[in-house]
């Protein structure tokens, strides 16, 4: 009999610590499926963030190097420059990627580092308990924007993926969502493409994944998927922003 659903070999048999309904578990699984399918385990290195996914090394059965908050793309640069034959990816949250690590992220992308970033955007700081993120939407209440984010006080949600898409060093830049199974499958395809772009040496690749955080959004897991689709995807439209493999000339 042919099994239709198995645990990826690259995913350790450890129960996830993530909250019910959290998107990290889904993306972890997608990444591990791809590591198996693309036969990357022997040459891939992950740089997880400071944030909820700092514990990614408890689940990924691959080489992993912790990073200080926001420094993922700099560390990944060090890895890739020292070992260009390896596949390097950062796994980062919104605070890591687009607040404290903005400089490291933008410059790695602009240098066209042959690395891949998987950017989990849930519009809130998860691990520290629901504070405002750079990607928190206007009006969204968090523990440090209790009256809702106001542009005149806290500024606007930062669309770092859109910024990166304008940089010549970026080869593949896309935004996906975990709002339903079809979009989850699309997310997997996008991450696959991002790794392929890196392996082909084309430049920096980035997949932003809109991901639910029911705990800090203070909704049920079920409601969080509707929130993702109806509110987050309005602020952050999904789709490919840049793909040099399909550009002409």
């Amino acid at each position: 009999m042919k099994p239709v659903y198995v645990r990826p070999k690259s995913l350790k048999p450890t129960p996830f610590h993530y909250c019910p309904g959290c998107g990290h578990s889904i993306v972890h699984r997608l990444v591990c499926e791809l590591i198996d399918e693309m036969d990357m385990r022997g040459k891939i290195i992950c740089v997880p963030p400071a944030g909820c996914a700092v514990l990614a090394y408890n689940y990924f059965d691959i080489d992993v190097c912790e990073s200080a908050h926001g420094r993922g793309c700099a560390i990944a640069t060090g890895f890739k420059r020292a070992r260009p034959d390896k596949i390097i990816f950062t796994y980062q949250g919104d605070g890591d990627m687009a607040a404290i690590g903005t400089a490291e992220t933008l410059h790695a992308a602009n240098r066209g580092e042959r690395i891949t970033s998987i950017f989990i955007n849930n519009a809130v700081y998860g691990m520290t308990g629901g504070q405002m993120a750079p990607t928190t939407m206007l009006g969204q209440k968090t523990s440090t924007s209790p009256y809702g984010r106001r542009s005149e006080i806290e500024g606007y949600p930062l669309k770092i993926t859109d910024l990166i898409a304008t940089l010549p060093g970026a080869a593949y830049v896309t935004r996906t969502s975990l709002a339903n199974p079809a979009k989850i499958r699309e997310t997997k395809k996008s991450i696959k493409k991002a790794f392929e772009v890196q392996i082909a040496g084309l430049g920096y690749s980035l997949v932003e994944v809109l991901s639910p955080c029911p705990t800090n959004w203070k909704v049920t897991p079920k409601e969080s998927f509707a929130y993702l689709e109806n509110i987050m995807e309005k602020e952050y439209p999904i789709g490919v922003m840049k793909d040099i493999t399909t550009q002409k000339g």
Binding site: C65, I75, A76, T77, R81, A103, E104
Partner: peptide, 19 residues
């Protein structure tokens, strides 16, 4: 590699050292 900052540079060192 000329990093974008001292912070980035020391973290690049960290990554290279880990290899």
């Amino acid at each position: 590699l000329q990093g974008e900052s001292e912070i980035a540079s020391i973290n690049m060192v960290l990554g290279a050292a880990a290899t």
